[in-house]
């Protein structure tokens, strides 16, 4: 991170890379970031496909409030985050999401939830003398460079469980997302699947909050997945491409922020993801007309 190492970076990329990887915090960030990015891409693909980006936004608000409720109670903030987001995801899913409540009600409820988070933040910072002053910024915008070895392994383990879970339900979920009526008639438990999926989105939101923060995580869910959907019409390819693009965003963001420390890492990650999405529009305009048939059967 010194000037010397930066000028060296221009001269010799290989040894600059070795330099970078000699920092344990970079290695932790890369490993945890890769695991979480893969889950974000996989889950994000279905989030975009099902038009539930705003549920991701709402669950980010819930993650913030859950984190500070846990800190106010003296618990680990991750416990609060996971409990709140998984619970809220299940409730959203069981209520039926879009059909029950209009956007005014949903917006007002989640705005109040965020207001409650501000209450817990104030409680935490005024009542706890050992309170961590950076906690607010870390929860809002992530702290991927502050991940310890044990945190990293925990994040990787949770990400692995989530990835297995989403891949297990991927096939029926895809069916239910594309045509819920036919899927229901074919015996797919559409409603239960939707609730389970939103619970998974909740857990993913809590995971992603650790790297890009509660405010930006829905961008990491939406941008790589939406870009992948524009690059390929095949759902399975798009699913994996979403994971790949999310991982590329996290890696590129970490490197950019390492080379230019003035740029916060979550800003860099989000910029790369948004740029990839913007590129998918350019490719769409330049490339041959959209005449390629939808290959790859849904079921």
């Amino acid at each position: 991170m010194t000037l010397a190492s930066q000028s060296f970076a221009v001269a010799n990329p290989i040894s600059a890379l070795a330099d970078m990887l000699a920092h344990p915090f970079i290695v932790h960030a890369l490993l945890a970031g890769t695991a979480i990015a893969i889950v974000c891409g996989l889950v994000g693909y279905f989030v975009v496909l099902r038009g539930q980006v705003f549920a991701g936004d709402a669950l980010g608000h819930v993650a913030y409030t859950g984190a500070f409720a846990a800190l106010a109670l003296g618990l680990d903030l991750r416990i609060g985050m996971f409990a709140a987001t998984v619970g809220a995801g299940l409730i959203l899913g069981l209520l039926g999401g879009r059909s029950i409540a209009d956007d005014v009600t949903i917006g007002t409820v989640f705005s109040w939830v965020l207001g409650l988070g501000v209450f817990f933040l104030a409680y935490y910072t005024t009542h706890d003398s050992t309170s961590n002053g950076a906690a607010n910024v870390n929860v809002l915008f992530g702290s991927i460079f502050g991940i310890s070895t044990s945190d990293m392994w925990a994040a990787v383990a949770v990400a692995a469980v989530l990835a297995v879970a989403i891949l297990t339900i991927a096939r029926p979920l895809l069916f239910a997302s594309v045509d819920s009526a036919v899927a229901g008639a074919a015996g797919v438990p559409v409603r239960a699947l939707g609730a389970l999926f939103l619970a998974l989105v909740g857990a993913t939101a809590a995971e992603a909050s650790q790297i890009v923060g509660a405010l930006l995580l829905f961008g990491l869910l939406a941008a790589p997945a939406a870009a992948a959907r524009r690059f390929t019409p095949d759902p399975w390819r798009a699913l994996w491409l979403a994971a790949l693009l999310a991982t590329a965003s996290v890696w590129a963001g970490i490197v950019i922020s390492y080379v230019a420390p003035a740029l916060p890492v979550s800003f860099a990650i989000m910029s790369v993801a948004a740029a990839l999405y913007a590129m998918s529009f350019l490719r769409h305009t330049w490339a041959r007309p959209a005449s390629s048939p939808v290959h790859g059967a849904v079921m």
């Binding site: 980006v53 879009r98 995580l217 961008g219 939406a226 916060p264």
Partner: peptide, 28 residues
């Protein structure tokens, strides 16, 4: 609105997240 198509809600979500990220950049 919230009932926008999947593509449009992804665009809005990305724009919002990017705007917040830019705000964080200026703050830091």
């Amino acid at each position: 609105g919230r009932n926008a198509s999947a593509e449009q809600s992804a665009v809005i979500g990305t724009v919002q997240a990017f705007a917040l990220a830019c705000g964080y950049l200026f703050v830091s």
